[in-house]
Design a protein around this nucleic acid. Structure first.
Lengths: 217, 217
DNA sequence: ACCAGGGAGTAGACATTGTCTACGGTGATT
DNA sequence: AATCACCGTAGACAATGTCTACTCCCTGGT
C-alpha cells in the first residue's frame, strides 16, 4: 500500500509525480505537503529544508535515468550501438521529463541539501552514468582498434576525456534543445511538443561520429 | 550621470551588478528595487512582471557575451584560432559570471517575459552567437579544404550542424563544469574558485579537435 | 495665468511561500 | 500504568510577487 510507506518516501513520490505533471515550478514545499495529505510542517521532520526535499526528488531522477540507461544498453550488441542508445536515452529523457531534468541540474540545490540518506552528494549521482560512458567509449575504442589496427582514430584523448566530451555534448544538446535555441538555430519546428524531429536525431548522430569517429572508417 | 538614465535602465544595471556580486538567487524584485532606491512597486511601470525584469537582465548577459566574442576573435588570425578563442570565451564566461550564466539559460523566463523592447524573444539573443560560430566553422572547413583538397574530414555534416554540435558541446561543458560533475568525473580540483585548471583547457581543446578534426591533419 | 491630464513613483493590502517554535497525541518500553 | 521519544499539527513570522488606490509633478492647452 502507498499509505504503508513512510512519509519521507511518499513526499518524494508526490514530488516526482508533481514535477512530471505540472513542471518544476510547482514544487513548492507546501504544495507537496498538501498533495501528500499532511500539514505544511510535516516534511520538516524528514527534510531540514525545502531544497533538501527537492534534492531527494532530483536523486530519483538520476536513478530513473540510470535505469533507462541500463535498459537501453541491454538490448544492444556492439559498444557503438550501446553508446548510441545511451545517447538517445539521455537526450530523450531531457525532452520527455523536462521538468525533472531541469530540477536535476539546478545549481541552487547542489550543496544546500547537504547529504542524502547514504551520505552522498547529488553531484555524485552522475558518477555511475559517467563510468558507464567511459566504459562504453573504451570498448568502442578497442573494437575500432581490432578493425583498424594502428589507425590513429579521430580522437587521441584517453577514454575518460572522450567520455567527458561526449557527455557534455549530449548534455548541452539536451539543455539547448529544451531551451529552444537549437530549434531556432537549425530552424526546426518550434519548441512545442514536437516528437524529437529528426533534426535532433541527426545532430546526436553527428556528435557520436565526431567523438568516436565515423561508424564506417 | 547615472541618475539621468531612466529607471528602466537603472534597474537592469542594478540587477547585473547584483547577480555578479551576490549570485542569481538574490535577484528578488523588491531587492532590486531597494538597491535602485525606489519602492517595490516602481519596477512594475517598466516590467509587467518579475520575470520580464530578469529577462531583460539576462539579455544584458547575452550582449556582454557577444561583445567578448567579438573582442576575442578580433585578435586572432586563422579561423581555427578564432574558434578556439571563442570557445575559451564561452566557457570562461560561464565560469567567471556563474550567476549570470545561470540566469541566461533559465527555462522559466523563456516565454513568460514576453517580448523585449525590440520585440525579440530571449531565445533569439543567441542567434548572433550561433551565426558567428557557423561562419567560423565554415571558414575553418574551407581552410582545411585548401590544405588537403578532397580529404574527407572528420566531419561530413554541413557547417550549421557542426556549429550546433560544437556549441552544444561548449555549453554542456560550461553547465556540467560549473555544476561540479565534470570535476568529479575527471577528478580535478574541487569546484572552489579554482582558476580554470588545465583539465578544462584540455577538454575544450579535445572538443575542438573532435568537431573540426585535429589541428595538424 | 490657470487648470486639466497623465506619466512616474509611493504605499498599503493581499495571498502565498519557507522557516521556526510550541503544542498534542499515539505507541512502545520499562 | 507512567514515561518518553517520535510524528504530525497549528500558528506565527518575515519576506516575496502582484494588484490597486493614491499623490506629486510636469507638461500642454485655453
Amino acid at each position: 500500500m502507498d499509505s504503508e510507506s513512510s512519509l519521507r518516501e511518499r513526499l518524494i513520490d508526490v514530488g516526482v509525480d508533481l514535477v512530471a505533471s505540472e513542471g518544476s515550478a510547482s514544487l513548492g514545499l507546501r504544495e507537496i505537503a498538501r498533495r501528500a495529505g499532511v500539514s505544511h510542517g510535516a516534511p520538516r521532520r524528514y527534510f531540514p529544508t525545502h531544497h533538501s526535499l527537492l534534492s531527494a526528488i532530483a536523486r530519483r531522477g538520476f536513478e530513473d535515468l540510470g535505469a533507462r540507461f541500463a535498459a537501453a544498453i541491454a538490448d544492444m550488441a556492439s559498444p557503438r550501438a550501446q553508446l548510441q542508445a545511451a545517447a538517445g536515452v539521455y537526450v530523450g529523457y531531457a525532452l520527455e521529463c523536462r521538468g525533472m531534468f531541469e530540477l536535476m541540474f539546478r545549481h541552487d540545490l547542489l550543496d544546500s541539501e547537504k547529504y542524502a540518506s547514504d551520505g552522498s552528494r547529488l553531484r555524485e549521482a552522475t558518477l555511475p552514468l559517467f563510468d558507464h560512458i567511459v566504459d562504453l567509449v573504451a570498448r568502442c575504442r578497442a573494437e575500432r582498434e581490432v578493425a583498424h589496427p594502428g589507425g590513429a582514430g579521430a580522437s587521441a584523448s584517453p577514454p575518460p576525456v572522450t567520455a567527458a566530451a561526449l557527455w557534455s555534448n549530449l548534455h548541452g544538446i539536451a539543455q539547448l534543445w529544451t531551451w529552444g535555441s537549437l530549434q531556432l538555430a537549425l530552424d526546426a519546428e518550434p519548441p512545442g511538443v514536437a516528437p524529437h524531429g529528426d533534426q535532433l536525431d541527426r545532430l546526436v548522430k553527428a556528435v557520436l561520429d565526431a567523438h568516436l569517429g565515423p561508424v564506417n572508417a
